[in-house]
Design a protein around this nucleic acid. Sequence first.
DNA 1: CCGTTAACGTGATATTTGTCACAAAATCAA
DNA 2: TTGATTTTGTGACAAATATCACGTTAACGG
Lengths: 192, 192
Amino acid sequence: MSQLLRTHIEAICPLSDEEFAHILSHFKLRKLKKHAFLVQEGEYVRQEYFVLKGCLKAYIADPETGNEFIYQFGAEDWWMTGREAFFKETKATINIDCLEDCEVLGITLEDRNKLGADLWKYEHFLQVKANLGYISLQKRLQLMIMGTAKDRYEHFIRQYRQYPQLFSRIPKTHIASYLGVTRETLSRLYRR
Amino acid sequence: MSQLLRTHIEAICPLSDEEFAHILSHFKLRKLKKHAFLVQEGEYVRQEYFVLKGCLKAYIADPETGNEFIYQFGAEDWWMTGREAFFKETKATINIDCLEDCEVLGITLEDRNKLGADLWKYEHFLQVKANLGYISLQKRLQLMIMGTAKDRYEHFIRQYRQYPQLFSRIPKTHIASYLGVTRETLSRLYRR
DNA sequence: CCGTTAACGTGATATTTGTCACAAAATCAA
DNA sequence: TTGATTTTGTGACAAATATCACGTTAACGG
């Protein structure tokens, strides 16, 4: 199962068996039931997580309207955390919860830093990963501003296609939230 | 002048004189006139740049409408590049040009990688910087979807306040583009 | 310095998208 | 299984924002 993590890291930076064992020893497996929170608003975010199994949504609740804006889905092979709170060691302003039963590997900030200091390759992995994440987030922002809801929908499908059955399992309501439109609007876009 | 870069890096990771000298030796100074392109659509992006002086805009041109979406302003102390094209060594899909005369320090991808491999501190700096960038981009996306144009305007002013006189020098048309509204809408938001 | 260009504000109107209300279908959990 | 909850579609209407048109002011560059 943890082979997933190795493959994931090695896509950026090949590792020896010892190196990977050393990395893996810093992670702790966590299993969560559907609807369980991985990160909850107002609490500290002690770890960042690599998803081995299941699917999660990360979202911001709007206290005014009661709406939620889903800014990320996480499936197998994705990282999930309340990034700002995790790095700055402050309380989360976002929530992450499980759309289905999940298994994740968690690492604390302290261990993350230690690992990066021990092993240049891990630091490099983190650097490249963060930059790639930045690039795709930028693309999403661009699409949000310049693209139509339909563009965004199509881009979304392309991006998540690689995760089989996942797309069909996410309710349209959530997808609409991710795309920044109401479920009604999304529904109408697909009548035409 | 290059003291700016040192202070910037040391905000994340303190350096010895030798270390900084080593870092600096990988950068090359470039001076540009107002309206000059730093990055141009369709061309390779050979370097990433640290801004020493002046102000630039990074934008995507929409071939359909002729509009442009400004996704970032860069002033002194900011990094600017066509990030995707720079990392993936492909042709740029974005433009960056100077709103006024500029001075920047440029580093090639090869030198960037070499520097990171030579000096763990630099790799660490890049890693942290990318993560902080990701966080602020995420905040911007959130604001774009959940906030009103006014929220975005106010956030924008707060973010750029630290760059004296800069804000007043950027035409409102450009600010509107950055905020994802038309200049007319922005103008009206501020009558009220 | 002066002609040209860019920036800015504002009205009238069109378009997009959101909100509210309701009902049918699908899914969930005891 | 079965009653409750969630998801989905759709109409009518409201609100936000874009588009087009025009004129004035400010800034730029030779």
